[in-house]
Simulated assay, not measured.
Amino acid sequence: MAQTRAGRLAPVVEMAEKAEKTAVQRLGHFQGQVRLAQSKLDDLEAFRLDYQEQWIVRGSGGVSGQWLLGYQGFLAQLGTAIDQQRQSLAWHQNNLNKARDTWQQAFARVEGLRKLVQRYIDEARALEDKREQKLLDELSQRLPRQDQY
């Protein structure tokens, strides 16, 4: 009976393993998205730093008002791009956190089902061992005894 219970759970375990595998793939995808978004943010911030250093170099020699307006306008656009990239990174990190939670739940489900199947298998073995022992006991009692006096 317990053996058949373990057998009946096999498709459920298989489906849970498939869901866990899908969750792992999604987790990997979102980890890549976070790395990419972080890399873009790092690039933008490095570019802004370089651009600000140009101001120091160029500004020390004097600049025209038009150049200053262009510099400030571009720096403002760069700041907006950095803010948007930070929002994008936060969005991707949120997706990563959700994917991690989903994977952890799927993993826990698979592990729980595997333990249940193993318990059913262990119960079936124990029952079979009891049956065997009982049969051996009955057979040994049926054998003629040779008493030595």
Rank of each mutant, 00 (worst) to 15 (best):
88 S>E: 14
65 G>A: 12
82 I>C: 09
81 A>D: 11
64 S>T: 15
96 L>V: 09
59 G>M: 07
99 A>L: 08
6 A>D: 07
63 V>W: 00
15 M>Y: 11
46 A>D: 10
17 E>M: 12
89 L>S: 03
64 S>A: 06
130 K>N: 09
77 Q>I: 05
105 Q>W: 03
126 A>T: 08
28 G>K: 15
34 V>Q: 09
131 R>T: 07
18 K>S: 13
21 K>C: 01
18 K>Y: 12
67 W>F: 12
70 G>M: 06
110 V>Q: 03
127 L>D: 09
77 Q>S: 14
112 G>W: 04
44 L>T: 00
140 S>Y: 15
19 A>R: 11
12 V>S: 03
62 G>E: 08
132 E>Y: 06
22 T>P: 02
2 A>T: 07
13 V>H: 05
38 Q>M: 13
112 G>T: 11
12 V>W: 10
4 T>I: 14
62 G>R: 06
6 A>T: 09
28 G>P: 04
135 L>Y: 09
113 L>E: 01
37 A>F: 12
17 E>G: 04
99 A>N: 05
84 Q>N: 15
92 H>P: 00
17 E>Q: 14
61 G>H: 07
38 Q>G: 10
129 D>T: 07
123 E>I: 02
64 S>H: 05
65 G>E: 08
33 Q>K: 15
121 I>S: 00
13 V>S: 02
22 T>L: 15
19 A>W: 01
89 L>F: 04
139 L>M: 14
144 P>A: 07
133 Q>V: 05
97 N>W: 00
100 R>W: 08
3 Q>L: 13
29 H>R: 14
112 G>D: 05
106 A>W: 03
83 D>C: 01
122 D>G: 01
70 G>Q: 13
147 D>F: 15
118 Q>D: 08
100 R>D: 06
131 R>W: 06
91 W>I: 04
83 D>E: 13
71 Y>T: 00
141 Q>K: 15
104 Q>Y: 10
73 G>E: 11
68 L>D: 09
23 A>F: 06
9 L>H: 12
10 A>P: 04
148 Q>I: 09
54 Q>W: 04
67 W>C: 02
56 I>L: 10
88 S>C: 06
25 Q>W: 10
69 L>P: 00
57 V>K: 10
110 V>T: 13
110 V>C: 03
46 A>G: 02
106 A>E: 07
53 E>Y: 04
10 A>F: 11
74 F>S: 04
48 R>A: 14
64 S>W: 05
32 G>R: 11
142 R>E: 13
108 A>G: 01
130 K>R: 12
42 D>G: 09
94 N>Y: 03
78 L>T: 04
49 L>M: 02
98 K>A: 12
73 G>V: 01
1 M>S: 14
43 D>I: 10
39 S>G: 15
71 Y>W: 15
